[in-house]
Computed example of a mutant assay.
Amino acid sequence: MKKLLLLLTCLYWNCQDGAAQSGIYKGIGTVVFEAGVPLSLIKGTSEAAKGTIDLESGKFRFDVPITSFRFLNSLMHERFNDKYMQSHRFQKATFTGQIIEKKPSGTNGETKVTAVGLLTIHGVSKKRTITGLITQDAGSNWQLASDFAVELEDHHIKVPQLSSGYGANTMQVSLQMPLKPVGSAVPQIADAKKLSLK
């Protein structure tokens, strides 16, 4: 009986160490998109974006529920979900893929990363290359930031007609996300700084 308890204890601690040192980071962040011009701007904000990055393999996944976007007024929110995004059918936007390149961006601990993957919006997947910045925040926590454009036609989204008479063909998207290591113990900072994402 004592041997069994000892074996179970060892297995438990080994599993805990493995989870902590897996190099997997997760976070919940903010996505903001803007379309149009200042006088007829369509702007949505979601604070429910979820992300996972494996620093060992470089694989990642980000997703945001479409209905989590908030607007200046309820009519804009209704039109966005029903008319343009059909969120009852296409509930999430996702970006999954692999980080293929990393290089220092400055002296403040920033690392520029280049990711290739499938961006799926409105049920339509498009291969994209998107760049971002990962900055060490506190301890072994990181901050991810990225700005990129999305062409609405690429995802078969009806182009909103603005009050100026022109259509908003492009969305400018901004992502801000804190990332924390998965597991009860903190991975070695020196290992995290290597950003061995290939």
Rank of each mutant, 00 (worst) to 15 (best):
S146T: 07
V173R: 05
T107I: 08
R89L: 14
Q176R: 11
G167R: 00
Q136Y: 08
F148Y: 09
G97R: 08
P178W: 00
L162Q: 05
S87Q: 08
I66C: 07
Q143N: 06
K102S: 11
G106R: 13
T107G: 10
E151T: 09
K193D: 13
K193Y: 07
L75Y: 10
S125K: 10
S164D: 04
D137K: 11
P104Q: 13
G139A: 01
Q98A: 06
F90N: 13
G51P: 06
A168M: 03
T52D: 08
E78L: 12
S74R: 11
D147K: 08
S164F: 00
F148L: 01
L55H: 12
G97F: 06
E101A: 05
K112T: 00
V124F: 10
L144E: 04
H88C: 05
R61A: 15
T107C: 04
M171H: 04
L152V: 02
A138K: 06
K193F: 03
L179M: 12
S140G: 01
G167D: 00
I157T: 02
V159F: 00
F95D: 02
T135D: 00
F69P: 02
A192P: 03
K103N: 05
F80G: 05
E153I: 14
K92C: 04
L72A: 13
F71T: 03
F95R: 04
P160V: 10
T52Q: 13
W142C: 14
R89A: 11
S140I: 07
V150C: 03
D137A: 07
L175K: 00
I121Q: 08
L175N: 01
Q143D: 02
F62G: 09
L152C: 02
A149L: 08
N141D: 12
N108P: 00
S140T: 15
Q86Y: 09
G167S: 00
F69M: 03
L72V: 14
F62C: 09
Q172H: 10
S105K: 06
E47D: 10
M177T: 04
L162M: 04
R61Y: 12
R128T: 15
M76K: 04
K59G: 11
T107D: 14
L55E: 11
V186C: 07
F60M: 08
S163A: 10
H88K: 15
V113Q: 00
L55C: 14
Q161D: 08
V182K: 12
G106L: 07
S174A: 14
L55W: 08
K126V: 15
S174W: 09
F80K: 01
Y166P: 00
K127S: 15
K102R: 14
K92G: 02
Y166F: 09
K103S: 05
G132F: 07
K103V: 00
F69R: 09
T120D: 14
G106T: 10
F71Y: 06
M85A: 07
L118K: 15
L175R: 02
F60I: 15
K193P: 11
T111M: 13
G51K: 06
Q188P: 03
L119Q: 09
P187D: 08
K50S: 11
P181W: 03
T67I: 12
G183N: 06
D63I: 09
A192S: 15
L119G: 02
K158V: 07
E151W: 01
N108F: 12
G97P: 10
K126R: 15
G183Q: 07
